[in-house]
């Protein structure tokens, strides 16, 4: 028996919007820790890891570990039927091949349930080793989204370089080149507007902009984004989900042949 009640139902809609461009089908894993997911895109270049901790739910009952295979577009179709202020409850019985999403309006005058068929998904669960990152950049998520969008109109790949001067995003394409440098800036009115660079040593890595643009679909989940870089390692782009957990994206770098 599984019953997860999330008062802030719109959060689940945002989580789905943040993943469905990258991943079609995925297993949602439910345990005492929380509601989580790990999935790769079809070309195995990017990986998304989601955690919504059990403490973040108003009610969390998960009698035994359960893995539920879902098509994210179908799940999104169902969640779009929930009002933005609705409370969403996810329910499943042991041994059944469906999951129920229950939507309650804030004043309880409308209650809907949508039952979705589950699917069998063969997915590999990768072990992500702990890493020391050479540079960690925290910046406003809207700023990062803007940079990825702007650069992708010029080129297909971005070089992200962190030095003492700041973090530089560079691209090149048929029509020309572009460089955007963001300097550390802690003197802002609100902490979420700061750009903070923790650098152990300079690092420079190349990534496909297409994937980074997909990651920025998570922008509505968090005011800030953290980008962790180390040479020879996938970049980690993390959006913290307030009170609940995180959505992390890992992207394999483009490397010299």
């Amino acid at each position: 028996m599984l019953e997860l009640r999330l008062v802030q139902g719109s959060l689940l809609k945002k989580v789905l919007d943040a993943m469905r461009e990258l991943v079609n089908d995925a297993n949602f894993d439910c345990s005492a820790t929380g509601f989580s997911l790990q999935a790769m895109d079809s070309s195995h270049v990017a990986l998304v890891a989601l955690l919504l901790r059990s403490e973040g739910f108003e009610h969390y009952r998960c009698d035994r570990n359960l893995s539920m295979g879902m098509n994210l577009n179908n799940m999104s179709k169902m969640l779009r039927c929930a009002g933005n202020d609705d409370i969403i409850t996810i329910k499943a019985d042991d041994g059944t091949d469906s999951v129920t999403f229950m939507f309650e309006s804030p004043n309880q005058d409308k209650i809907a349930d949508f039952e979705m068929k589950l699917m069998d998904i063969d997915s590999e669960h990768l072990g992500i080793p702990d890493a020391e990152y050479q540079a960690i950049v925290r910046m406003p998520s809207s700023e990062f989204a803007r940079i990825c969008k702007d650069l992708s109109s010029i080129g297909d790949t971005v070089v992200i370089s962190v030095t003492k001067e700041g973090v530089k995003f560079s691209t090149a394409g048929d029509i020309g080149t572009a460089n955007i440098v963001c300097r550390q800036n802690k003197t802002v009115d609100k902490p979420e507007e700061a750009t903070i660079i923790e650098m152990q040593e300079p690092v420079s890595l190349t990534f496909a902009l297409r994937y980074l643009n997909s990651f920025t679909k998570a922008t509505p989940l968090s005011d800030t984004v953290t980008i962790s870089l180390s040479s020879e390692l996938p970049v980690v782009v993390e959006y913290k989900i307030a009170e609940m957990g995180y959505i992390r994206y890992y992207l394999a770098p483009k490397i010299e042949e």
Partner: peptide
């Protein structure tokens, strides 16, 4: 020329 690497090259498959 840079080649796109795969995530599976970095993370282990237990």
């Amino acid at each position: 020329v840079r080649k796109q690497s795969q995530i599976t090259a970095f993370f282990s498959n237990p």
